[in-house]
Structures are given as structure tokens and as C-alpha cells.
Design a protein around this nucleic acid. Structure first.
Length: 226
DNA sequence: CGTTGGATCTTCT
DNA sequence: GAAGATCCAACGC
């Protein structure tokens, strides 16, 4: 570490494997592609001087133009949905069931109200802080810490105050750490809790890592293995 | 271990 | 006024 090569290697390693995802990544036009591409990426928050985060293992895609399950269905603009109509790369956080702050990533170009719901991460950094925030301090590190959209927001300290905040920031961001997810390690199922969406409830737009213990437990309806 | 219902409040009708 | 992109404790077995 102390010799010249050591320092160079560290710098290169940081540059190559800790690259923060940039705006053009989030502005990809296919929200289902992005939803899959986000698997294996690392979601971080830095709040109150504490870094915490982990690897994304489960996501869901929502498409504003056509998707009855999306809050911006038929491009409906409301105070709540307006941030989804902006450019990709900002946070869409909303309160679910009056209790849980659900963290979404706005995607696509301005005018296209698409978003990816992050449903679970494998915790890797700031685990004690996450346990404290989840009222699980001192216990074993178990999947319930971050498996489920309400749980992971609580663990990472994300609240509705983060609505609209940039993901190219030093508060919430996502890094590509070079983890490659083979296509056949991804399972697609129906999305969770969207039965009201009629035929769109059957879309295979929930993506998770096969046989991963950190995903949420809802089985969904399994369409196929990709 | 599977099922059930309560918590809790913003958003939109 | 109703429903909701959820979670968890309390049951019953």
C-alpha cells in the first residue's frame, strides 16, 4: 500500500469499481432493462455522517405511459408524480400505507414517467447503523433488515424528505462495483401488491436474483427464468 | 410455520 | 371517504 504501485492500484481500483452511476445510465429508455441492470449495483446513503448501503438484489419496473400499476398511469401529473416526469436519476419517494417510505429511481427522458422500485438489498456497509435504524441493534444480521421496500428505506434512513433528490449526489447514490449478473441468474415474476392493476398486474416486471437470501419473501407469480 | 388484522396518513375522487 | 408498489405482532396449529 505504501509503495508507488500500491497507491496507483488503489486509485485505479477506486475509479474502475466504485464508479457512481451517471445521469445517462438512468435515462435509458427501457425501464425494464434498467430494472434488470440495477441488480448487482450498490445503493448507498450518507446521512448524519454515516455511510450505509449494499447490493441491489430485487427491483420492480413501473411505466407511466401505459402501466395501470404506476402512479403516473396514462402520464397523469399530480403533485406526487411530478418528479417522475423529469429526467432520470432522481429519487421518487412516497409514503405507502401511511407508514413506509418507498424508494424509487426515476428513469428515462423528461416527459416519460418511468421509475424503478428498489425492493431489497444485500447489506454490506454500515450494518450497525442499519440495525439501529431498524430497531434491530445488537442482533444477528438477518434478511429482514433490508428485504422489502419499506425495510430497506428504513435501514438506509431514506424518508419522503428525499423526494426529488438527485442520485448524482453525496446523500443517495448508486455505484457500479463491477459485479456482473448473468442473465440466467435473474428471475422475473409479477410485481407485488398491484392486484388492482387488472391485466398489468400480470406483467413480469419484478426482477430478483435467483436463490438469493436477501430478496423479499413474496413469491409473486413466476413467469419464467430469464 | 401459516394466517390475520391493525397501524397510520397521504393522495386522489 | 377510500385505498394503498407494507410490515409486524399476535394468534392458531
Amino acid at each position: 500500500m505504501k509503495n508507488w504501485y500500491g497507491w496507483v492500484n488503489m486509485i485505479n481500483s477506486n475509479m474502475e469499481t466504485h464508479a457512481k452511476l451517471s445521469a445517462d445510465f438512468y435515462q435509458h429508455p427501457e425501464v425494464t432493462w434498467l430494472s434488470r441492470a440495477l441488480l448487482g449495483k450498490y445503493l448507498f446513503t450518507f446521512k448524519e455522517g454515516v455511510l450505509s448501503g449494499g447490493m441491489i438484489v430485487e427491483t420492480e419496473a413501473y411505466c407511466g405511459a401505459t402501466d395501470r400499476a404506476c402512479h403516473a398511469h396514462l402520464n397523469k401529473r399530480t403533485e406526487r408524480t411530478q418528479v417522475m416526469f423529469g429526467p432520470g436519476g432522481v429519487a421518487y419517494v412516497y409514503l405507502c400505507y401511511g407508514i413506509h417510505a418507498l424508494f424509487n429511481i426515476v428513469t428515462n427522458q423528461p416527459g416519460c414517467a418511468d421509475a424503478v422500485l428498489v425492493r431489497a438489498i444485500e447489506p454490506t456497509y454500515g450494518i450497525e447503523a442499519m440495525q439501529y435504524r431498524r430497531n434491530m441493534a445488537g442482533g444477528k444480521v438477518i434478511p429482514a433488515l433490508t428485504s422489502g421496500p419499506g425495510r430497506l428505506s428504513a435501514a438506509l434512513g431514506i424518508s419522503t424528505a428525499d423526494y426529488g433528490s438527485s442520485l448524482i449526489s453525496q446523500t443517495i447514490w448508486i455505484e457500479d462495483r463491477g459485479v456482473e449478473i448473468p442473465e440466467d441468474n435473474i428471475v422475473a415474476t409479477t410485481r407485488i401488491g398491484v392486484e388492482y392493476a387488472g391485466p398489468d398486474a400480470l406483467l413480469p416486471w419484478r426482477f430478483l436474483l435467483k436463490d438469493n437470501k436477501w430478496v423479499s419473501k413474496y413469491p409473486g407469480r413466476r413467469i419464467k427464468d430469464l
